[in-house]
């Protein structure tokens, strides 16, 4: 099984959001692998490995489109256990989701993976569209917002539990599909691949941290650099960020001393009861 995992580097969401000249000020920002994409790498690893003995039966190729220094975040995914990476070098201002989809489609066509697994959204742009668009462009089925995955290798099918409004939907897709993952995909038993024993529990504390051995190994793993022009992509996005503003601050709140005061204020002051 070969799995392609597109990842994006994003500013660390725990930093305070600053605005300069009507755009996000990223001077001195620290960067991380988008959390949902990190979960996608974790999901791909769980699909190709025996969680109990660590043996692997597949290949994971990471793709990232971003500036030169995004190589650092790409190495992080190699240190987690991905086998090799493709880095399409481009500044964030030169690309939009349409360009990203165009590039990913070309890479899928040349790499011919069985699956594409990615985060359901990037935690900076929160757009939640690239996975669905890629599936549409490829003419592949999609299973978005995956909270559980069960792989049936013999029949080349996956049953995906999707967290939807009002419950959990189970959808079956064949291989050659695009899966986007949600938070709970990293729960201890969310991914079943028919190889890892059912008794095995993953930690459930998010994606695995790279081990020292993994970090050393990552330095030797192939990281191929590409340019936008290699994909016939122009650095002229059709989606343009005009400006960014902070939301209006909420009026200062107040502490109330007891429940009767709270109810009185909710009724008389806030007119909420």
């Amino acid at each position: 099984m070969k799995i392609l995992v597109p990842v994006k580097r994003v500013p660390d969401p725990t930093q305070k959001t600053k605005i300069k000249d009507n755009h996000i000020d990223l001077t001195g920002a620290s960067w991380i692998v988008n959390t949902f994409d990190e979960y996608a790498v974790e999901t791909a690893l769980r699909l190709i490995e025996n969680g109990a003995d660590g043996s692997k039966h597949g290949e994971i190729v990471v793709v990232s489109i971003g500036p030169d220094d995004a190589a650092k975040e790409i190495r992080t995914t190699l240190a987690m256990g991905a086998d090799r990476a493709i880095h399409v070098v481009a500044n964030d201002s030169e690309i939009d989701s349409l360009t990203v989809v165009k590039i990913l489609k070309a890479i899928v066509e040349s790499e011919k993976p069985d699956l594409v697994i990615m985060g359901k959204q990037a935690v900076d742009g929160d757009a939640n569209q690239v996975g669905q668009m890629l599936a549409g462009k490829l003419g592949w089925p999609q299973a978005t917002f995956a909270a559980t995955i069960e792989l049936d290798s013999a029949n080349k099918k996956l049953t995906v539990g999707r967290e939807v409004d009002g419950g959990v939907e189970y959808k079956q897709v064949p291989l050659n599909s695009v899966i986007t993952v949600d938070l709970r995909i990293v729960a201890p038993k969310s991914v079943k691949n028919g190889v890892t024993p059912d008794s095995h529990n993953y930690s459930g504390e998010g994606a695995r941290l790279p081990s020292l051995k993994g970090i050393m190994a990552a330095k030797k793993k192939p990281l191929e650099q590409k340019k936008l022009a290699d994909f016939g992509a122009e650095p002229k996005p059709a989606i343009e960020e005009k400006s960014v503003a902070l939301p209006p601050p909420r009026a200062a709140g107040q502490f109330v001393s007891d429940v009767p005061t709270l109810v009185k204020k909710l009724a008389d002051e806030a007119k909420a009861l």
Partner: peptide, 14 residues
Amino acid sequence: ILAGNAYSTVAINT
């Protein structure tokens, strides 16, 4: 965007 910590105005030119 950014978990609601900012609002972005985007132009879609398609």
